[in-house]
Structures are given as structure tokens and as C-alpha cells.
Design a protein around this nucleic acid. Structure first.
Lengths: 237, 237
DNA sequence: GAACATTTTTTGTCATACCAAAACCGATCA
DNA sequence: TGATCGGTTTTGGTATGACAAAAAATGTTC
């Protein structure tokens, strides 16, 4: 019931954390800056090194600073790049849930179906040109499974870029960085690559003809086939 | 495994972290169990309390244990609930980006447009009944802005439940828990509530008539109006 | 001015100590 | 018997000091 957030009680580190977080967000600590040495923070804020280290560690885990061992922590502006790491760990957790793979895959289908609809309705000439370029690269790579995988994700990536919403490429990156390790070890015969390319081509042509229903249909068929591949590869369903 | 940043150099805490993480995932440490006392871990693994505390803190930040001050950390199985907190912080970061509000709102429009399409095509009788119940509660609350907000999100929540994908309600919760604080302080005259309810009703009826195109159109109109409200409330665009 | 050797910082880790809150336990009392 | 109350033990939060090793800063030599 009680959705936690009982931050009621106070640890000394929490204060330090919020102080630095504010300094980072306000720009007092710019990106690339280094945090002061631990002993200096100790003197400045009158706390023990224990607390300082705890606070810095928390900032590091929050992604606000990047702390390599034996190096001073470096400030990183919170943004899409820093968020990516966290999202990836989230995706990992979601995948561990029962049916996680299927659920995330379904979600991807839903999102990408919506994407091709939008693309069919609102893609600019430049968008379509980029799609075509990606498609041609995809075709050229049907013989090389490794290269085909790259051009495959690139083609889908263009779809995520069309709505001009930076959150979408972000999601795509989070998804593919999970996918990549699993996908690459799947057997990919050239004939299957050829079939996938043809599917991409049909989606592209539906977008070209400004037919959202057809684009969605082709996209869903393509991803359903991809899911079958996944199923065959990982017996676990 | 090392989904994290750089596995380059070794901190002593990293070992402990992976040990406990393995124990949690394998079930050796079940949900609700408490981690051993720090001093016991010290003796077991032959490291200092500094390292133990650092490891526990990291586990806590990872969401694998829930550590209230002065209490023993309690093991939590990674799942949707634990992931929620992290996602909320991510959403916060994304909102801080330039145009973040607009981008996330657009994303929501896109997702929910896809949702009502699916609902119009595949909603069961039970789904439609739940939608109707939520709609009626919504209508009954047009006079009370606070209650209307609750029934409003509940109605949209039902939409996220229809595809039977637990990730979708998860996303909805992450979205609304951000939205709630901002939304509630918006002025909501009953007349505006009435208009929002009518919009909900039109979406519902489109789903009832199995008309995905109309459902999407009504949903987009509804959310576009909602965005105008947001714009009016927060000058910052 | 560049390559090398040396000194100083700074982090990572350990050990110890103390306080206060929590948990534990036994005695008391209804 | 069972609940309550008080004190004792455990345990987490913090402080302090120390040391090794790596990094950074400095100086030295060619």
C-alpha cells in the first residue's frame, strides 16, 4: 500500500547530495568540472569523509557525476545520454519479469506501428530520402549478417527520428542496446536477411504512398516474423 | 551482468555488490529477507565496514534492497514497483531537457493514440464495461475538480490496461505520478471538467463502435485540448 | 623544450570509537 | 496467561586517524 517515499528521516549525506545536485542543475558546477577533493568538501561542509564518500557515490549512481576509480568525479549534465544507462538497467529488470521479453516486444510493435502511421502521414521529403538511403544500405548488406543487423537497426532508427521528438531515438537506443547482444548471436542466413529487407521495403513503399493502414500492416507482419525468429532462437518463449 | 558503466578497474565493493545481487536473483535471499548485519558481512567476506556500507548503498540505489535509516536493508525482488521509482527520476531528467514537457506530452499522445486504436479493434466486452464504469465515475465527478482528476486518470488508466501488457500500466503510472503534482494545481472549472468528460465519452463511443480512426481522432483532439490547458497554466511553453 | 625522477595530493581501504535508535529480553502487573 | 514496561544488547550512522597505491604536480636533467 504505502508507496514508500518515506524519506522522512534524515541521513547526513542527503543534504550534501541535494547541495551538489542543485549546484549541478544551476550550472555552478559545469559539465566536465571536477568535484572538489573529498577532504576539501569535509572542511567546507563540516561533515566526515564517510558522509562525503556516501554522497559522491549516490551522485555517481544517479548519473550526475562519472566516477572512475582513483579519479576525481567528473560532473555530467543530466541528459539523454546519462539517462540511457539507467533506462537500460530498467529494461533489464523488466525483461526478468515473467513474460518480459514478449511484453517488451509487444510494446515495441505498438510503438513502431504508431510510428509508421505517423511517418506515412507526416514524413517530409527529407525523411523519405533518409529512409530510402537506409533501405538501400540494408539491401546492400543482405550478404553480411553482421552488417545487415547494423543497417536493419539503422532503418528502424530512421523511423524513430521522423517525428522529431528526441525522446523517441532515445527509446530506440535503449531498446537496441539490449537487443544487440542477443540478436547478433542469432543465426541469420542470407535468405532470411533477404526476406527482412523485402519487409522493410514494403513498409517504406507504404510510407511513400502515404498509406498509414498498409504501413502499419506491413510493419506488424515484419515484426511478427521477427518475433518468430526470437522464439525459435530462445526456447524459453 | 556488468550492464554498468566501466568494468575497467576494480573496487572492492563491486565484488560484494555482485555477490549479493546474485544471491537476490537466485532466490538465496528471498523478498522480504533482511541483509545480514554489517559487522557480520565484514567477518564473512573479510572486508571493512566502509566497503560493506558502500556496497549496501549501491544495492539500495539499484533498487534491489530498500534501506530505511536505522533499519536493516530489506531485500526487494526487482519488479515493476521498484523500477517505477527509477523511471520517475528518468522522466524528471527528460523534463529538464529543452522542450522536455512538449516532447513527453507528444510521446504520450502517440502512445495513447495507438492504445485507443488497439482498444477499438480488440477490446473485450469486459474491457468496454470497465471503460464505461470509469466513464460514469468520471461524469459523476465533474463537480469536484479533485475527484475529477482522479477519475480522469483512472479512465485513461483503463486504456493502458486493455492490451494486457503489464508494461503499459507501468508507463501510465510513471507518467501520472509526474503529472499529478503539476496537474492538481491547475485551475479546473466545472465547465472545463464537463468538456473533458464529453471528450472521454466520444473516445469511449468510438471504441464501442469499433472505429479506430475515429477513436484516434477524438483522443488526439482531447489531448490537444489538454495541452492547451497545460500551455495556459505554465507560460514557459 | 622534452623526457625522466621525485614529491605531493588524493582516493581506496582499513581499524576503531562513540552515539542514538532499534531490537531484544526479562521482570512486572492486570 | 498475556500484555506492558524497563533496561540491556545489537546495530546502523557518523567521526577520526592511518596507510598504501595511484594520480597529479613538481622539479631535474639532458
Amino acid at each position: 500500500m504505502g508507496t514508500d517515499t518515506h524519506i522522512s528521516e534524515h541521513r547526513a549525506a542527503d543534504h550534501l547530495i541535494s547541495v551538489f545536485e542543485a549546484q549541478i542543475r544551476s550550472g555552478a558546477l559545469a559539465e566536465g568540472d571536477m568535484l572538489p577533493p573529498e577532504r576539501e568538501i569535509v572542511q567546507t561542509y563540516g561533515v566526515s569523509r564517510t558522509v562525503v564518500r556516501e554522497a559522491v557515490l549516490a551522485l555517481s549512481n544517479k548519473g550526475l557525476v562519472q566516477a572512475r576509480p582513483r579519479h576525481r568525479p567528473v560532473v555530467v549534465k543530466p541528459g539523454y545520454d546519462t539517462a540511457l544507462n539507467v533506462v537500460q538497467s530498467i529494461v533489464g529488470q523488466l525483461l526478468d519479469q515473467p513474460g518480459g521479453i514478449r511484453n517488451l516486444f509487444d510494446l515495441r510493435i505498438m510503438m513502431e506501428a504508431a510510428l509508421v502511421r505517423e511517418a506515412a502521414l507526416k514524413a517530409t521529403k527529407e525523411d523519405i530520402q533518409r529512409l530510402k538511403t537506409a533501405l538501400m544500405a540494408n539491401e546492400a548488406a543482405t550478404g553480411n549478417s553482421e552488417a545487415f543487423f547494423r543497417t536493419d537497426t539503422a532503418f528502424h532508427g530512421v523511423l524513430f527520428e521522423i517525428p522529431n521528438n528526441p525522446v523517441l531515438p532515445f527509446i530506440h537506443r535503449a531498446y537496441t542496446t539490449w537487443l544487440a547482444p542477443q540478436w547478433t548471436q542469432m543465426p541469420r542466413e542470407p535468405q532470411r536477411n533477404q526476406r527482412n529487407f523485402q519487409a522493410h521495403k514494403r513498409v517504406y513503399e507504404a510510407i511513400l504512398h502515404r498509406d498509414p493502414d498498409l504501413a502499419e500492416k506491413e510493419l506488424r507482419a515484419h515484426l511478427a516474423a521477427a518475433w518468430d525468429q526470437v522464439c525459435i532462437t530462445f526456447e524459453g518463449l
